[in-house]
């Protein structure tokens, strides 16, 4: 792929993703039938479940980037790690907001300290701390290594979130997959899942470019005038 077409791939993914999310949401809101027990409220599933899947995917990608950086030391993996972590935090926070809006009419409360919700809150805090603390790291090499190690440790919570509804007696329902929901609900779920997938991959690619530009600035040698001013004159001490 030529550099020029690669330049346009990320914005194209964002546009296609946004179009798919609009189409899937319209299908879920206006065409899909209401669920037998939850009625209209169940339509929240078409955005909540794809967000959950994609938050998990974005964090798995961040985990892969962290391992790749630790193994190769290639900076492109650190840039992608920073981008994927930020995306994972955004999707996890969005997931919690959608979940709270769904919980109120179905459970009667906005939030409950049930295993699925608690482990998700731990994930938001654990993963969210890494980009926040990266902002304070001034030495790029050290910052990249510790954030990759922190990401590997924080990733341990991702499978715990996924299996929490199986391992413990949870108020939250079991995982929603095409096998566990009616076939009438499949298409809006799938379209939104691929829409959010394209959207976040495009956004992560753009965000990684931003990280690469910032890294280039951080590691660039200072201009000659500034370098001369910073170097003490011979015998100055």
């Amino acid at each position: 792929m030529s550099p020029r077409s690669r330049q346009w791939l990320a914005p194209a993914l964002v546009v296609v993703g946004a179009a798919l999310v609009c189409a899937g949401s319209a299908w879920g809101l206006f065409k899909a039938p209401p669920e037998v027990f939850m009625g209209e409220v169940q339509r929240i599933m078409y955005v909540h479940v794809p967000t959950a899947w994609n938050a998990m995917l974005a964090l798995s990608f961040a985990f892969g980037c962290a391992l790749a950086f630790l193994l190769t030391g290639d900076w492109k993996w650190d840039n992608r790690l920073e981008a994927a972590l930020e995306m994972g935090v955004v999707l996890s926070l969005l997931l919690c907001m959608q979940g709270a809006i769904w919980a109120k009419p179905t459970w009667g409360v906005w939030w409950d300290w049930d295993p699925r919700l608690t482990t998700t809150a731990v994930r938001v805090l654990a993963v969210g701390a890494i980009p926040a603390l990266r902002a304070f790291g001034e030495v790029p090499g050290r910052r990249a290594v510790w954030s990759a190690v922190a990401c590997v440790i924080a990733f341990a919570d991702v499978p715990i979130v996924y299996f929490s509804v199986k391992w413990w007696n949870s108020l939250h329902q079991a995982q929603s997959t095409p096998e566990t929901v009616s076939s009438a609900f499949h298409w809006p779920l799938r379209i939104n899942a691929f829409g959010i997938l394209f959207l976040w991959t495009g956004l992560v690619a753009l965000r990684a470019r931003l990280s690469a530009l910032r890294l280039r600035e951080e590691t660039a040698p200072p201009p000659p005038a500034e370098a001369a001013a910073a170097t003490p004159a011979q015998g100055a001490w």
Binding site: G39, I44, H48, I101, P105, R207
Partner: peptide, 29 residues
Amino acid sequence: GVIQGGEEFVIAAYAVTAAVLSAYAASIY
């Protein structure tokens, strides 16, 4: 045993999703 109404929660969930994703995309841009 069937939840009645709740359209306002559905609208809120979709509005929050659109707002968060659009705001994040704009921030990256």
